[in-house]
């Protein structure tokens, strides 16, 4: 395989996103990730749901599907399991928005974790239903004063929930920091098993307030082996293998402090197909 430029992973279509949308940053990070991992185009399969963020697959030069709202996970698991059973080394991604993966498609998350099919699930979290023009999403911030708040309900906490489900690889990135995001995506894709990455991706049209400044300014980047200070004053050496620390990190509300980096990485476990094969051999 010849070294491939990130551009080789993008087709000629022009994205429909608004100028300044975080999804552009994600798309370029994704192309760079594929390029740096040197995965041939024809061995990539990207399944998405419906939403602005789910349009991303339409701009790639890979195999994939922009299917129906909330169903990227079942489709991607089916594709990966089928490829595995054919002996085809296919890199499979499931991508969706916060509404797609954490509202209409939430039923699939804990089960994808349990099956541990080797796919990377990436959520582009813009805290809003952007494609349908601004309704509240499950991650829309909640203010105590409901009269000024956009949302009537407290948000879900995707990282906390995913860790509780038992996700083996959990990370968060920021669409505006492409080089950092590339590092995270590479780690997620090369992790053998189900991985989940939450990408904070700004919506310039419908997001309330200056959320993006908060996401940039009050954040903390996690680096393995470096000291991090939690809002409660505790100091820890960051170790993605430490689940106790991961629990503390995901307990911190996003509106208090966003953490970017690999939050948790469990030792790799066997996947669904391996388990089937094992039962069969015995």
């Amino acid at each position: 395989m010849t070294e491939c430029d990130p551009k080789c992973y993008l087709n000629e279509l022009k994205p429909i996103w608004c100028p300044g949308c975080g999804d552009y940053g994600f798309l370029s990070a994704l192309a760079r990730t594929f390029s740096e991992l040197k995965i041939p185009n024809h061995k990539l399969f990207v399944a998405t749901g419906i939403g602005c963020s789910s349009r991303v697959v339409g701009y790639l030069k890979t195999y994939g599907i922009n299917g129906i709202h909330g169903r990227a996970l079942p489709i991607s698991q089916g594709a990966k399991l089928a490829a595995e059973s054919l002996g085809l080394d296919l890199t499979v991604l499931a991508i969706g928005g916060d509404g797609d993966l954490f509202s209409i498609g939430t039923e699939h998350l804990p089960h994808a974790v349990r099956r541990n099919v080797d796919i990377a699930c990436i959520m582009l979290d813009n805290q809003v239903y952007a494609m349908t023009k601004g309704q509240t999403s499950p991650t829309t911030p909640y203010k105590e004063d409901i009269l000024t708040s956009h949302s009537l309900n407290p948000p879900v906490d995707p990282l906390l929930d995913m860790l509780t489900f038992g996700t083996g690889f959990l990370a968060q990135g920021l669409a505006t920091n492409v080089p950092h995001l590339v590092g995270i995506l590479k780690a997620a894709i090369t992790y053998k098993g189900f991985s989940f990455v939450n990408v904070q991706s700004q919506c310039v049209s419908f997001q309330e307030g200056d959320w993006i400044s908060h996401l940039k300014q009050n954040c903390c980047y996690l680096k393995e082996g470096e000291i991090i200070e939690l809002p409660n004053g505790e100091k820890w050496l960051h170790d993605p293998g430490n689940k106790d620390l991961a629990r503390k990190l995901v307990e911190v509300a996003l509106k208090e402090r966003p953490y970017y980096g690999i939050i948790y990485r469990a030792p790799e476990r066997e996947g669904y197909l391996e388990r089937i094969r094992k039962i069969n051999q015995s």
């Binding site: 079942p74 489709i75 698991q77 089916g78």
Partner: peptide, 20 residues
Amino acid sequence: VQGESEIASIGMILGASLAG
């Protein structure tokens, strides 16, 4: 695969079919 619902089940087979 026993899906988590019929939606998941048909999604799985659609993905598998796309993979050939």
